[in-house]
Design a protein around this nucleic acid. Sequence first.
DNA 1: AAGAAAATATACCGATCGGTATATAAGCCT
DNA 2: AGGCTTATATACCGATCGGTATATTTTCTT
Lengths: 193, 193
Amino acid sequence: MDTAAYILEKVAPIFNKRGYIGASLSDLTAATGMTKGAIYGNFSNKEDLAIKAFNYNLRKAIYPLFDLISKQPDALTKLKVVTDYHRGHYERVADMGGCPMLRVSSDTQHTNPLLFDKAQRLSQTFLNGLIEILNEGKHSDQLRQDFDSMTYAKVILSMIEGATSLAFTHHDESFLAVAMDSIDMLIEEKLKT
Amino acid sequence: MDTAAYILEKVAPIFNKRGYIGASLSDLTAATGMTKGAIYGNFSNKEDLAIKAFNYNLRKAIYPLFDLISKQPDALTKLKVVTDYHRGHYERVADMGGCPMLRVSSDTQHTNPLLFDKAQRLSQTFLNGLIEILNEGKHSDQLRQDFDSMTYAKVILSMIEGATSLAFTHHDESFLAVAMDSIDMLIEEKLKT
DNA sequence: AAGAAAATATACCGATCGGTATATAAGCCT
DNA sequence: AGGCTTATATACCGATCGGTATATTTTCTT
């Protein structure tokens, strides 16, 4: 039986809720029902575990979207997948206590450069992905040529991040619903040919 | 001399950077150059100091906007003040390590109900303010009647929060610039009569 | 200047922190 | 079953945590 995987599964939401720095060893032993011996037998230290827990949360929260995007045939369906995915984002990440990317980037910016760097890179990957989709849409003439991809990628990502954050501070997933509608409308009215 | 005010001034950015939970007493004594005796002579405990530091940060970061809004004569100038204010938001809150509202809401959601409640209320106040402005605009016929104020307030606030968050995770204030342009455009094309 | 009052510094408290060394238990091989 | 290896639990480490009691300094009053 893979205890390392079991520990990660139990510990990942704790890190996301109590903070990747703030979660204490006793929080982790309490969540797993195991002792420090088991934890340190499978992970080299708390930071190592935090990083792997972050990756675990990303695999559940964000990577599925990346996979989904890569399976779409063209830019418009990819964009639709992005907004549809986030319409279910609240429920998807509710158990882990919110979006891990937002949590880590706010949590670790001035306290843990290594983790912050990972969050920053992920956000950049997300942004680059959006830019790529927009450029692909221009290329295939699904989208107009006369807008700046970077600009609109930033606007779309801002809306996604802001709506996710607000959905959790208000426990109200309608923030995501209206924001995704707004992005769909933006695409329809300003980006499509 | 008002040492309580001095302590708050020095300590407020530390709380915002290292976390309202994560900042330790030794972080605080280091930042102020004073000892625990001075701190506990002026504040009852760390949480009390954290709350007052949060208020201090809000007075610098957000309340000036509320004041500015209240001085505007009509809905359109109020909306313009909102976007213009946030164009300078990065520089304004850079020294304190980011937007205190975002920090606290992510930081304290699962760790400090009292502080989280304060952040939640503030966010709600912000949202209500936007709704009120939109309704005022409808009333004075500056804005159309056929849109839902709550919906657009949520969209606008999402964009603001998301852009602020991203500006700090990428150290790139252009996120705020393009998001505010986008909000201005949204108002111009979809809300104005 | 002397003494009282207020504010700050120092010294200390038990509890908890992350981490490790050792002891115990569980699984595996023959 | 017996012995070996691997994994988990226990016991303990120094450091730091938030907080307090006391000592010292500073400020105010007269």
